[in-house]
Write a protein that binds this DNA or RNA. Structure first.
Lengths: 343, 343
DNA sequence: CTTGGGGTTGTTAAGGTAAACATAGCAACC
DNA sequence: GGTTGCTATGTTTACCTTAACAACCCCAAG
């Protein structure tokens, strides 16, 4: 009976006006205290802080955002978030954003292949972000993002050539290092397990692999094409195991290398005795595969910092997308999966 | 010279008023079209949509949030985001949120051990979220989050007993299944590599392990304590390898199992010939370890859906935290790392 | 004693949206 | 023909904050 029940509705915490009333000052003075800026007499400030404390006040971010047209948040767009590359980059981006007092909003573009992309892009514009970091957008259509020209954007690992500033690792150089490492060990040539053809980094790694072989006058065997997953690595491993000429394999990422090594093992091949394997990425579990995986390590924390730095730098610019690209270095990490070929 | 240069400032896209003017209707009508709700004559709607299209209008989310006190976003709080459990859960949460037209804002609480926690909690309240999902908050202080009583919260995997509704897996049952699997294979007892003592799931798994052994009247050897990392798994593996009585090991997570298996391998132990290993989590790479890892698989997508469902259900409630807990089932996945003991 | 200036506080307005309420047009019915 | 009732649209207002400007106080200098 008591109509008191469903008084629910919005909760609406205390506002700046409530604090002002309690502290006996104007709202503006409260604002000054909460933004920290202006000159406020110490005793007034104390009164205000006390009132804030008592009411449990914290400023309303929506109102603030509306006021000055900024949201204090960066959007992170990817197709998936549970893969190593995305997860490591995201963690790094988050830490970098935190240091700048920005938050991170996740934006997903799951099936960017076709019609699904359009609503995703539309939704994107509605998001409350001051800038967007686009991660690994393989499969995206040619002209994927109809973003406002003033929206700060930085791209990692995508094929959006030239449209937006990029933070990349030198994929080609990394692939080259991997191949040269194996050649230096004495292998005649290096077989290759590639990433999906619609991925820009995969494409670049393939170019690097081929160039390294060509430069030394070695044969370039036909690569096998995977899709980044260990499953595809396993399939490739089975195929390679059937070819007795294979003594060294470069995998376009570590996860495929895991699958590949298991397949080689299952086929009775010894790593690195019969076949050497090198991966790419430097995922943490790579130290603990059997055997531990030689790989090209990407500096994900550095990538994250660069991404954030570049997107923040664009904020407020008239032509934000003119920021120069940034390249983050790579490192060869030699572990036990690579060795000289058995004579 | 030209002072045209730094005209920068805020960009401010077209507003509802601009659309209204162009379409020759009132702002309210535009609003009706953009929220989709009310009755609008089809031809009016068409005019408005055309105007929106021409101006590239999209509603200002800050204004909308200010208007109706909701942000359309859920906060996801964790200490790290690059570990498997967090990444998988987060991916699942994101997908579930998307289905409900919510976005996900990342909130981090890196070093929650001590003084660092306070500012983190404070920052939390400033975030633009309608609810918070707290993930694996091990190490948090006893009374970590001074969140408003009306803020919807759901906890996964944390020690915040009873304070907030939880979505958990039945850790104890999972551990029990792992142990019973090994006992059923004929092992005399099961050694244990535990997670960190300040983690609630780790604690529960330990209880499950102990209970399973006790129920069958088996000895409960002293566990080794790890910290979830493969590094700690490696150290534990070296220790176990030195004990000839060890024939079966249950690891509190898969990543430690990776390190442990490498250490056993390095010590010349055969898996599962000499020692069987069972993990916990069901990470995707577990299928591709050498040998493939028997494990207790958590249904992360389901966990994500439950978390979102429970936090959304609290929105608008007067006593949001009274929602009942939810338990997501686990599954034993038998692969090659477990087998009967060698006679 | 007046004037001026620096330091502190208050008042006004604007930012974009959508609920609540108000109005206008029109058809049906007595 | 006038009343009723419905649909479509317009007007007002509140949401909360902060920049810009105005007002005020007090002390120092003329």
């Amino acid at each position: 009976m008591a109509s008191t029940g469903a008084r629910g509705g919005r909760k609406r915490g205390p506002s700046i006006a409530d604090v002002a009333r309690l502290a006996g000052v104007s709202a503006q003075t409260v604002s000054r205290v909460s933004t920290g800026a202006e000159a406020v007499k110490p005793e007034t400030r104390a009164k205000v802080l006390l009132a804030m404390e008592q009411l449990g006040y914290s400023p309303n971010r929506a109102a603030r955002a509306l006021r000055d047209g900024r949201y204090g948040s960066i959007g992170f767009l990817a197709r998936r978030f549970d893969r190593t590359g995305e997860a490591l980059t995201m963690d790094a981006v988050l830490r970098a954003c935190e240091a700048e007092d920005y938050s991170v909003t996740l934006l997903s573009a799951h099936d960017t292949t076709s019609a699904e992309w359009e609503p995703a892009a539309r939704r994107l514009q509605n998001q409350t972000v001051d800038g967007i970091i686009i991660m690994r957008a393989e499969g995206g259509a040619g002209d994927p993002l109809a973003l406002p020209a003033t929206m700060p954007v930085v791209v990692s690992d995508s094929r959006a050539h030239g449209r937006y500033p990029r933070v990349t690792t030198d994929e080609m150089l990394g692939a080259r290092r991997a191949v040269e490492h194996l050649l230096d060990l004495g292998h005649e040539t290096v077989h290759y397990l590639a990433g999906p053809e619609d991925s820009e980094p995969a494409r670049l790694r393939t170019i690097g692999w081929r160039a390294a072989l060509t430069d030394r006058g070695r044969a370039t065997p036909e690569p096998i094409w995977g899709d980044w997953t260990p499953q595809s690595g396993y399939a490739a491993g089975s195929a390679f195991a059937a070819d007795p000429t294979v003594t060294a394999i470069f995998c376009a990422n570590d996860e495929m290398a895991f699958g590949l090594m298991l397949a080689l093992h299952a086929a009775g091949k010894d790593i690195p005795g019969d076949i050497s394997v090198v991966g790419f990425d430097g995922i943490s579990l790579g130290r603990y595969s059997v055997p531990p995986l030689t790989t090209i390590r990407q500096d994900f924390p550095q990538i994250g910092r660069e991404l954030v730095r570049m997107v923040l730098r664009q904020i407020g610019q008239t032509h934000p997308h003119s920021v120069p690209d940034s390249i983050v270095p790579l490192e060869l990490v030699v572990r036990d999966s690579s060795a000289p070929p058995r004579r």
